[in-house]
């Protein structure tokens, strides 16, 4: 089982700060406008939300694992609800690598695997180095092609 690059936590932390910041700003604005919202309460709530977010980041990183198995791509993820996903290579429609702005800043990339399913139509593996991501994409593409020809 392979875990993600540790730097992905920074990307997630950035994401976890967003709701806290929104709450804080909203609280401060409300205070300015004169609504009875004590700034301390808004700050407290924001801190609590961020703390929860950070805890989630910690656990999410610990849980996230993936493995390129013989016949399927296998992933384990999820903090509260843990989900193990198996994507048979035969079912892979196409594979993307993706690099968002934050990921680019941190030198990371994601691989997105698409199937035709109605529920798990796209599955993202975040937190890979760009080299690993393009390796993985190529490997999955090969496996997807091979799996069509074997067992004839």
């Amino acid at each position: 089982m392979e875990s993600l690059n540790p730097r992905v936590r920074l990307a997630w932390v950035a994401g976890a700060l967003v709701p806290g910041t929104v709450i804080l700003v909203a609280g401060l604005i409300a205070d300015r406008v004169g609504l009875p919202v004590p700034p301390a309460a808004a700050a407290g709530l924001a801190v609590a939300v961020v703390a929860l977010g950070l805890a989630a980041v910690f656990f999410r990183y610990r849980v996230w694992r993936f493995e390129v198995r013989d016949d399927s791509l296998y992933l384990v993820r999820g903090v509260l609800t843990r989900v193990d996903t198996s994507v048979p290579y035969v079912r892979i429609q196409h594979v993307d690598t993706r690099r968002g702005p934050i990921e680019r800043g941190l030198g990371l990339a994601s691989v997105v695997v698409y199937t035709a399913g109605s529920r798990g139509a796209d599955i993202t593996i975040p937190g890979l180095t760009p080299a690993r991501a393009s390796d993985l994409r190529e490997r999955l593409r090969e496996l997807a092609t091979e799996s069509e020809f074997d067992a004839v």
Binding site: L80, T81, D84, S86, P88, A116, I123
Partner: peptide, 13 residues
């Protein structure tokens, strides 16, 4: 079949 998920919520675990 396309994808197989095994999921466990906190309560299921």
């Amino acid at each position: 079949l396309q994808t197989v998920f095994v999921s466990r919520t906190v309560f299921q675990r």
